[in-house]
């Protein structure tokens, strides 16, 4: 009886764990099902090569490229902000900061990371964009630059904290060895800590890119919902995520081509982030092996 009870609990816990597998199967299943429906109506070659994305217009074009360049543009700007700032602050927190400063700064960064993205969107549209416009007169009210910068600040705590973890894991003996050879602190950081933590840092960066690519509300609010094949950060664009929101806001019945496009766009997004996440996971595991 007791064994039966124990066994039943074990089974129940096992089912909880396998739910995650079913979630993945569910995501892939739903995306594939609707995407296949989508490609029955639109040729995959048009999807990949057409330079216009106008499924909501009378004259429909289904080229994913404008959405991809929009996504790519905003993410690049975000990484240009988050990468240097995140890495520098990780170095400061792990190598220079006194314990007290760490105790204050780290929780504040966590709060920064916990702010809902819709709040960042408000800030990008109504604070950062007007501010930038006073420097760059030709900039449009909706653009890629402002949400890119704000998104960079949003993912900064993540880059900083993951890189710091990686630096912290570099064995003390290695650093002490370098100091014993007469290296300065800066030299130890550039020649021992960063190379030693490199795969962990790269893993953090890749994860941050994946986060930027999938970010939705900041770009939906501040970048203008106009799919456009451009790398100009000053004009309105649209990302994959913003497009999905745009369609979801309207009343789009299941089965219509507009409805299917959000799944095809979602599939594209999912494939990109999946690759990024797996590479990041692989690098993190490798990093763990190194210092076992």
């Amino acid at each position: 009886m007791r064994r039966l009870y124990e066994g039943a609990i074990g089974l129940l816990l096992f089912l909880c764990a396998t739910l995650s597998i079913f979630t993945t199967i569910g995501i892939i299943g739903v995306l594939i099902f609707e995407t296949v429906e989508f490609f029955k109506e639109v040729s995959i070659i048009d999807f990949l090569t057409d330079t216009q994305w106008t499924p909501l217009f009378v004259e429909k074009h289904f080229g994913i490229l404008p959405l991809l360049t929009g996504t790519f543009l905003v993410s690049t700007i975000a990484m240009a902000v988050a990468l240097p700032l995140g890495l520098l602050s990780a170095i400061y927190l792990s190598e220079y900061a006194p314990g007290r400063v760490r105790d204050v700064v780290k929780p504040l960064l966590e709060i920064l990371a916990g702010i809902p993205t819709v709040v960042y969107g408000y800030f990008a549209l109504l604070f950062v964009t007007p501010l930038l416009k006073s420097f760059i007169p030709g900039m449009a009210g909706f653009n890629a630059l402002s949400p890119g910068i704000v998104m960079g600040i949003m993912i900064l705590p993540m880059v900083s904290s993951l890189s710091e973890d990686a630096m912290y894991a570099v064995p003390r003996e290695l650093k002490e060895g370098a100091y014993a050879l007469g290296a300065t602190r800066l030299k130890v950081i550039t020649s021992v800590v960063i190379p030693g933590a490199l795969s962990g840092i790269i893993s953090a960066f890749i994860l941050a890119v994946s986060r930027a690519v999938g970010e939705t509300m900041i770009v939906t609010i501040a970048s203008g919902q106009q799919p456009r094949l451009t790398l100009n950060p000053l004009v309105p664009i649209e990302t994959i995520t913003a497009y999905i929101v745009q369609v979801s806001l309207g009343d789009t019945p299941a089965g219509t081509i507009e409805y299917k496009t959000i799944f095809a766009a979602g599939m594209t997004l999912f494939i990109f982030t999946l690759i990024l996440n797996l590479v990041s996971y692989w690098m993190r595991e490798r990093f763990r092996e190194e210092y076992r």
Binding site: V30, L31, G214, T216, I244, N277
Partner: peptide, 16 residues
């Protein structure tokens, strides 16, 4: 991997 899937993809899962 699921921890890194964009939240909007969960929205598509929920919708479907």
């Amino acid at each position: 991997n699921l921890a890194g899937v964009p939240s909007i993809i969960y929205g598509l899962l929920g919708l479907g």
